[in-house]
Design a protein around this nucleic acid. Structure first.
Lengths: 115, 115
DNA sequence: CAAGCGTGCTTGCGATGTCAAGCACCCTCC
DNA sequence: GGAGGGTGCTTGACATCGCAAGCACGCTTG
């Protein structure tokens, strides 16, 4: 499904990694990664999804679900601050993804951040 | 692993079902069921494990784990407003971007709960 | 005994996951 | 301009998934 594709592409670009860098870090071949991001794999192994979820700081459950697998009852709760008022409850993995994404944002718009 | 074998055999016998009865109920062929119970399958699809977990009334997570797959969030815990501490001060524009990104993340993880 | 049905198991095969190797392309540097 | 290194992508090969079909052994019946 496309859901998986976009999650993987988003995660990798957010981390600023090349296919070969991901291969190096996870042991998943760049060839296969390309196919995953191109939507050419119907049922990728949960093991592979798990490794990528850790590298990309995307919740494992999201990848499982995006791949079309049933997820073992999901619903996580957390509290945050004022930002949380806007974001709502988040999981630890989501926190990390958000932190990364913020760094990603700021690295792009360098010089344009004031306080 | 053998863990999966015993769980499946135990579940089926506990329900007093034949391989063909299970095939009838789940759509999984009796041939393949036999291979599963004989430990001749390395990475069975989570979809199949899910169907069997429902029929046998075995928690889906147990089957995933027994099959050697990582199970999502092995323990339930509530990490809280560390998010704000982790992110530090943010601009309003960043807040919005983060909210959007979180929504994006979750749009793939759409609410499949009620269990 | 033969006929039948039910059981678990094996086998042959198409479809698919995954990888090593290689291709085409874009940069940079000498 | 060629050498060299990066990038994503494609291809060919092999292992595995998962099934339809069939096998071998029961067991009841007539």
């Amino acid at each position: 499904m496309d859901a998986l594709r976009s999650l993987l592409v988003e995660g990798r670009t957010r981390k600023g990694l090349s296919l070969r860098a991901v291969e190096q870090a996870t042991g998943v071949s760049n060839a296969y990664l390309s196919q995953l991001e191109g939507g050419k794999v119907r049922e990728p192994s949960p093991n592979i999804l798990h490794r990528l979820s850790e590298l990309y700081a995307i919740p494992y459950e999201s990848l499982l679900e995006a791949a079309g697998y049933p997820v073992p009852s999901g619903g996580r709760r957390s509290e945050s601050s004022r930002l949380a008022a806007r974001l709502g409850p988040t999981t630890a993995a989501e926190d990390e993804a958000l932190a990364d994404y913020l760094a990603f944002l700021r690295s792009k718009t360098r010089g344009r951040n004031t306080r």
